[in-house]
Design a protein around this nucleic acid. Structure first.
Lengths: 150, 150
DNA sequence: TTGGATGCAAAGCTTTTGCACCTTT
DNA sequence: AAAGGTGCAAAAGCTTTGCATCCAA
């Protein structure tokens, strides 16, 4: 794990007068170490194994808190729920509308594009924080799957 | 209203074997004529006035259908719900995380940027359809409001 | 020490579904 | 005439909240 990300996240909590609890630590660590864009339930199920008595409410409450502090971003899934992603460097998301998987796409030009989009919002007096940039469509695997079912 | 958008939407329904009902017509018309990014409830409340006995379930069902046909896009709001937007030409959304307002930002370069992002997903075998591109932050009005409350 | 955080359970929403009736094709 | 869609109400899910207890600072 990139420890710097974790330390910076802890600092952001401290600077906002938010207490550092084991629950907050493991949730953030999980999000930093995994780029699987988990649902709330996935996060809960995985962490509950090694941290019994963890409460779903705590996961919900803390995800909401982290989102407000711009530590994570929330990605809508076509299945109705949300997926969560630690907001490290901005990157492109490709969301499969068939299996709901979210794929990270890295590209050196992306930071530049994000900057350009943020600048555009500044022109109308907006104060940008994070970006949520997704391309919807069908992933490679599902294209094959869907073709077979015809 | 741009009638072409409406006609094209109707064609897309027909081509997919979907029946054209008055409910579908008024919901689509409403979304085409308004760029206020309404919630499900707003859509229901406005349309129910002139179309009594409209059912919330019908609004939900049809929004889901339109989304699947890529006629509209669904934008997550920090208040937990979603906002809907007729998917005409791609454009940038600035989402205020304080008042939940969504602002359309038009820029001639945007189509080009969207194309570039879609191309990036194609490189990993993805088949892109629509984009959902939002910059989160605080709008002009809320910046003033929040400064006053200090 | 003490205000904030957690866990549990209950409440509150939002969204979907079942079914009888109605409408488009 | 038949397949599909609608409205209503009930069910199902998801998310938040109240409160007693616990713990980080």
């Amino acid at each position: 794990m990139d420890n710097k990300q974790y330390e910076q996240a802890m600092d952001r909590l401290k600077n906002n007068g938010v207490r550092i609890t084991p629950q907050r630590q493991i949730i953030l660590k999980y999000l930093i170490e995994n780029d699987n864009h988990p649902t709330v339930e996935t996060i809960f199920n995985v962490l509950d194994k090694t941290f019994p008595n963890l409460s779903m409410a705590t996961v919900y409450n803390n995800l909401r808190l982290f989102k407000k502090l711009n530590l994570i971003i929330e990605l809508p899934s076509i299945d109705g729920g949300y997926r969560y992603d630690f907001y490290d460097h901005p990157h492109l998301h490709a969301t499969c509308d068939n299996c709901n998987k979210i794929i990270d796409i890295e590209n050196p030009r992306f930071t530049e594009i994000e900057q350009e989009l943020k600048d555009e919002t500044r022109e109308v007096g907006f104060k940008p924080t994070v970006s949520s940039i997704s391309i919807h469509g069908i992933c490679k695997e599902c294209q094959v799957k869907l073709a077979k079912n015809k």
